[in-house]
């Protein structure tokens, strides 16, 4: 019961705090609109908001898919070919020194004002966390598992597919969770830099026209979307590793090493 009630109470509490700030500072509605006013706008402008939200969601999901796939492939290549690791790892680390946001205008220039540049932003921003998490997971297979696999006569391919890959799933899950929480940032920043659709565009546009209530409504939609995305990814990650839930609830956790 409390499990379902708690998010509702937290939401209501935050709304109340928001309203209190509005009352205390006596801010005009074009500086800080109250939650009720924003809700009104949300309902009145619902079709417009949904149209833009759909675009942003598509960008986020495509970025998530591409970034995860690229990250997974990179991590697999890094563990499979030791020589590649020595050359590629420094490049990856250096690439992280360049802020992805700084690349946004260039991506606009190369890929245009459409969805492609935003998908590229989201992909780039999640690529490194996913690669790092998968790579660590694949490297840190308990040596006992691998020794056992060798005495059982497994070749390198079977070891990778049946031992190292499943053993890396928990790490992959955490990479995916990080990706789900940063991918929306990439997409929205991409929209801020230059676009004619999407929630980021709508927010910037509403702000410029002093429609602060619409800006907040878009922000709310974005927040709900990001939360929904995080929890779905979390659910998928847990489905991928059913043994983790059981071992944490069990007192006889005998996981070796």
């Amino acid at each position: 019961m409390m499990r379902w009630l708690r998010p509702v109470i937290i939401t209501l509490g935050l709304m109340l705090l928001w309203q209190l700030i509005v009352w205390l500072t006596d801010a005009p509605h074009f500086i800080l609109p109250g939650p009720l006013r924003v809700l009104e706008t949300l309902i009145a402008q619902f079709p417009l908001l949904m149209k833009h939200a759909g675009i942003t969601l598509a960008e986020i999901l495509l970025g998530l898919l591409l970034g995860t796939l690229l990250g997974l492939i990179s991590a697999l290549s890094l563990v499979t070919w030791g020589g590649l690791r020595r050359w590629l790892m420094p490049v990856l680390v250096v690439s992280q020194a360049i802020p992805v946001f700084a690349l946004a205008p260039v991506l606009m220039l190369w890929l245009g004002y459409g969805m492609a540049s935003k998908v590229a932003m989201a992909t780039l921003i999640i690529y490194f966390p996913v690669t790092a998490a998968c790579f660590d997971g694949l490297r840190q297979t308990p040596t006992g598992y691998l020794q056992l696999a060798r005495t059982l006569g497994a070749n390198r391919r079977a070891q990778l597919l049946q031992i190292r890959l499943p053993a890396a799933l928990p790490a992959f899950g955490s990479g995916l969770r990080v990706a789900a929480s940063v991918a929306p940032i990439g997409a929205v920043v991409g929209e801020w830099v230059g676009s004619s659709t999407g929630l980021g565009y709508l927010m910037l546009n509403a702000n410029a026209r002093m429609q602060v209530d619409l800006m907040f409504a878009a922000l709310m939609v974005l927040a709900v979307m990001a939360l929904a995305l995080y929890f779905s990814v979390n659910l998928i990650a847990r489905r991928l590793t059913p043994w983790l839930q059981e071992s944490t609830s069990s007192t006889t956790r005998g996981d070796s090493q």
């Binding site: 308990p142 598992y145 056992l148 059982l152 079977a158 070891q159 499943p166 059913p242 005998g254 996981d255």
Partner: peptide, 20 residues
């Protein structure tokens, strides 16, 4: 024991067959 946590007991026993 080195049992693989993602496999059932039966599949753990069958591991030699599964891997080769």
């Amino acid at each position: 024991d080195l049992l693989l946590p993602w496999l059932s007991l039966r599949d753990n026993v069958l591991l030699a067959a599964r891997l080769t």
